[in-house]
Structure formats: structure tokens, C-alpha cells
Design a protein around this nucleic acid. Structure first.
Lengths: 190, 190
DNA sequence: TCGTCATTTCAGAAATTACCGAAATGACGA
DNA sequence: TCGTCATTTCGGTAATTTCTGAAATGACGA
């Protein structure tokens, strides 16, 4: 791996963090490298720069494509695939949010809905179902939020994320001037 | 494992999802069981219900404690530890958000800040640093948002999450009536 | 059609992670 | 101080995941 120290540190860190983010080290490294590369890279360039095996890079790129995290380009007179990350980092955020929803939220939401169709047979099951109801409501709320994030344009998304603690003030105003809009979430508000 | 089918299905699902959420199967199962149990359980009860080894349950509980995801109680005249999850599901959300920030955001933010202290030595490094700047700003924004989520009380948190796509309308109003508040985030808005 | 180059697949090796039983530690009452 | 019970630690093993080299596939121009 003969990379500038800056890039090398970033790539190695991303590899290590990969395990916490649900991707493996190789995939994390490939992604990090593509992220800081001015032009797209082909598989062999990635092999050279990261010192990984050809097939491993192929697998990693496949996984990144499954996550829709890399773009594929071609150059005239060159048969090879060149990979790069989207220029717009917010597009990456939307993609990640969408994929995480698909993988981490939706399956559980589906299961919770199914389990809550059954009638409880005793008090313990009744308690369990009540807990599952709380969790389903929570997951519905998350699913809705993730969906919103995916749909919002960049400016509004930044605003939504920056809003944070100001939410109360802003919402008081909303209630004053836009009354009567029911909240979407059903989650218990304690 | 002799559990009601409802609970069993939930426990098994949580175990499988565990790997996507960054915890292992055992830990996921233990957590799911505690979540739907009306009373706290001691280690041996968990062993019996889930069919795991004593030591594995001990490790799992230790990890859940490291995540602050379980509470420890005692009963008079009983030396054993009884474990349960917080009643308030929103407290669980805050805990998860805080821990995820600590594990998935903060380390990368620290590294990015460090890397951006160095002066670039050529054009490629200049490009890389520009990309890292975008990413640092993004992570700063996330860190701020996570912090807000942790601090907000439940009602406001639900409002913030429900707000979603309404953000534009609400923010137009805010700008009209509360002008001049600078946004915290520096992330490029393309 | 053939030869070349790029990519993917695949079976096994290597590495990592999860798991268990046994032993050690620690807390408590007698 | 003991003896008992609960919990944790530890060494080894099992299971899973990641990685590799070799072979297969596919695309393209001649």
C-alpha cells in the first residue's frame, strides 16, 4: 500500500470502523479509497493501492454495488470498469439511510406486525404483546423518518438535522399557525 | 427453549437481526427476552429459557450492561442479580443513540479532525482533504443531532421525528418569525 | 471463430468471533 | 473463619466470516 499518509490513515480507519458499521474491513477500505480519489479507479488500481487480492476486490465492489454506494463508469477505448463514489455526499447519506431502513428496520417491522395479529393466550403473552406494540410503533416512526430523509432535498435535510433542540420553539409556532395536523406516529409519549 | 410461540419468534428474530445491529445472536436473544418479560430475570432463568450456557449468558449480560441497555435489580433475601430493560422505550432509544454516537461517530470525527490539521502536499492530497472536510462536516452535524436526541424529552423527540417532510413549511415560518439564527452545521448544501 | 483481457465464481485456507465447561473469584451468612 | 451460592474468567473448540488462488465466464476486436 503506497498511499499518501493522509489517505492511508483514513483508509485504515474506515476499514477498522467497518465492523461497527456492518461492513467488513476490505469493503470499508475500498470505499474510503474511492471516496478520496479524484477520479474513478478500476479494480486493478484498487488491488495495487490496497494490497488486496483481485477476487477480494471484486467481491467488495460487488457488495458496494449491492448497497448502491458506488457508481460505475467507462472510459472510451477502455474495457475496464471504473468505480467512484457520488460527488454529492448527501446523496450518499440518502442511499445509506434507504439501505439501512431496508435491512435494519423493515424486516423487524414486518415481523412485529405479524406477531401482533395473534390473540394473546395469557397474561404474560398480553404483557409481551403490549411491549411489542410499543416497539412496533417506534419502528413505524423510524420507518417514516427514514422515508422522509430519503425524500427531502439537501437543503431541507440539512435544516431538519440542524433543527434539533430548537424543535420546541418551532413547533409551538407551527401549532399556533397550522393547527389540526395530526401527528403520524402512534408511539407512546409516556 | 420452552417459551410461548410469540415470544420465541421475537427472540429468534432479534437474535438473527443482532448481526445487522452490531451485536451477536446471544446478546440479541437475551435482550429480546428481557424486553418482553414482565419481571426481571436472573441469569439462570435466562439460561433455562434460551438454552444457552451459563457463561455465555454472563458475557451477554455484561455486554448489555456495557451498552447500558439493561438494569440490575435485587430482591430481598435473594443474592442473585435480576436484569430487566427500562420500562420507557424512549429511554432505550436515547441510550442507543448515545452509545451509537460514542462508538460509530465520535472515533471517526476525532480522526477526521486530526487529519485535517495537516497541510496537503500535492493536488491529490488537496482533493482528499476537501472530501474529508465534507465528511467531517457531515459527522459534526450527526454528532449534534445525536446529542439533541439524547437531550430532548420524549414529547419533543416524538415531535422531531414525526416532523419529517413537514420541515419546509415549518421552517419557512421559523425564518419569517425568528430570523437571524445561524445554522449550526457547516456541511455543504450542494 | 479465435485470442486477449477483465471480471466473477468457487472451494478451501486463514482469521475472527462465538460458545462451552471447568475452575477461579467474590459475596454473604453462619 | 468456613461453606455455599452466584458470577466471572479462562483455555480450548466450534462455527462463522473473510480472504485467496485457480478456474470459469463473458465481452470484445481481429
Amino acid at each position: 500500500m503506497q498511499l499518501p499518509p493522509l489517505v492511508q490513515a483514513f483508509v485504515l480507519h474506515f476499514g477498522e470502523m467497518g465492523s461497527r458499521w456492518g461492513i467488513n474491513r476490505t469493503v470499508g477500505q475500498i470505499y474510503a479509497l474511492l471516496f478520496v480519489s479524484p477520479q474513478g479507479l478500476n479494480a486493478e488500481e484498487i488491488v495495487d493501492k490496497l494490497g488486496l487480492s483481485r477476487s477480494n476486490v471484486s467481491m467488495g465492489l460487488k457488495e458496494l454495488q449491492a448497497w448502491s454506494l458506488v457508481r460505475l463508469q467507462h472510459r472510451p477505448g477502455d474495457r475496464r470498469d471504473y468505480f467512484s463514489t457520488p460527488e454529492d455526499i448527501w446523496q450518499i447519506v440518502r442511499t445509506l439511510v434507504e439501505e439501512r431502513k431496508k435491512r435494519e428496520i423493515d424486516p423487524t417491522l414486518t415481523l412485529l406486525r405479524e406477531l401482533l395479529m395473534e390473540a394473546p393466550s395469557d397474561d404474560d403473552e398480553r404483557y409481551a404483546q403490549q411491549r411489542l406494540t410499543e416497539m412496533r410503533d417506534l419502528f413505524e416512526l423510524f420507518a417514516g423518518w427514514y422515508g422522509d430523509v430519503r425524500r427531502l432535498d439537501t437543503q431541507r435535510l440539512v435544516q431538519l438535522l440542524t433543527l434539533g433542540a430548537q424543535v420546541q420553539k418551532v413547533l409551538e409556532m407551527k401549532d399556533r399557525f397550522l393547527p389540526g395536523r395530526a401527528a403520524r406516529g402512534k408511539a407512546s409519549i409516556g
